[in-house]
Design a protein around this nucleic acid. Structure first.
Length: 278
DNA sequence: CCAGTCAAGCAGCTCC
DNA sequence: GGAGCTGCTTGACTGG
């Protein structure tokens, strides 16, 4: 649905050209940002985890991969984290890793995504503190998920299993990710449509105002025009040769014409039947 | 599955 | 420089 579609009322008067408003750009940018945003690499360690390096980079097939140490605790079997342990170590990769992103994109396109996460790591985490820290997906995981989402916004159970295995996540996590992704895509779409409707409303209001002004201007000259301009056109007048009265085409009221013509008038419409005018 | 919600984690900013 | 605050993103849960 486009702005033009929304505003298409069939009206042809006036110009309703729609400039590309900066706000549109902002919105678009926002949308793009949403669509293309690559989640930051943020890993949360449970409080009992050692303070080991959590963003260990490993080179696999020339691609930098991030080792996710603390994650993938079964979301289905754990409750919300209310851990107050503040000893978790967060190391966030700074933005601007464009080359790395390109590398990841290349790898993604070749459908060869190697997640260097060992089951052992997960086991260690699951044996950690009872309360897990919130998982942050790695870039690679997010890329793959985004890629799959672009293909299909939903997954069947088998696809979910395969994807979960590929990303070394719990199927429930993949399921939740897709649910959230759908919901947030829909929300963004709704916002965009709302914005379009608002702009459309503004445009139609302006158009309505403009047309009303136009009507006012068209009506205005009738009141101020010279008297002669208010007379009916002479060519439409018909004189009855018998009663010698002018008929303006009013039928029954023709005898009550406002403009009686003297009997010496030579107005005569030869195309009209003489008696028809009376 | 969806809508609503919670809460962790992060960036950006201010203040000292 | 870092503590504190705020707003945003996002993983996860809950109820329908």
């Amino acid at each position: 649905m486009t702005f033009q579609d929304l505003c298409n009322t069939g009206l042809t008067l006036g110009s309703t050209s729609l400039d590309h408003h900066p706000q549109d750009q902002h919105k678009t940018k926002s949308l793009l940002k949403f669509d293309r945003e690559t989640p930051s690499l943020t890993l949360g360690l449970s409080s009992s985890s050692s303070l080991e390096e959590i963003n260990q980079h490993q080179v696999s097939n020339g691609v930098l991969l991030h080792r996710q140490v603390s994650n993938s605790v079964s979301a289905a079997t754990t409750t919300s984290s209310h851990s107050n342990n503040s000893s978790s170590v967060i190391k966030r990769e700074k933005d601007g890793g464009g080359e790395e992103v390109e590398e990841v994109e290349r790898e993604r396109s070749s459908k060869v995504v190697m997640m260097m996460i060992s089951d052992h790591d997960q086991d260690l985490d699951q044996e950690g503190s009872g309360a897990r820290k919130k998982l942050r997906l790695t870039k690679e995981q997010s890329f793959v998920l985004e890629d799959r989402f672009r293909e299909h916004s939903s997954l069947n159970p088998k696809q979910k299993q395969v994807l979960a295995k590929q990303l070394n996540l719990q199927p429930r996590q993949v399921e939740v990710w897709f649910q959230n992704r759908r919901a947030r895509t829909k929300l963004k779409q709704t916002e965009v449509e709302c914005d379009l409707l608002r702009k459309c409303c503004e445009t139609l209001t302006d158009e309505n105002k403009r047309l009303r002004n136009e009507i006012q201007e068209l009506k205005a000259p009738k009141k101020t025009a010279p008297f002669y301009m208010q007379l009916p056109a002479i060519a439409t007048l018909t004189m009855c040769p018998s009663c010698q009265q002018i008929d303006s085409g009013g039928g029954e009221n023709s005898s009550k014409s406002l403009f009686p013509v003297s009997s010496k008038s030579h107005f005569y419409n030869s195309f009209s039947h003489p008696s028809a005018a009376c």
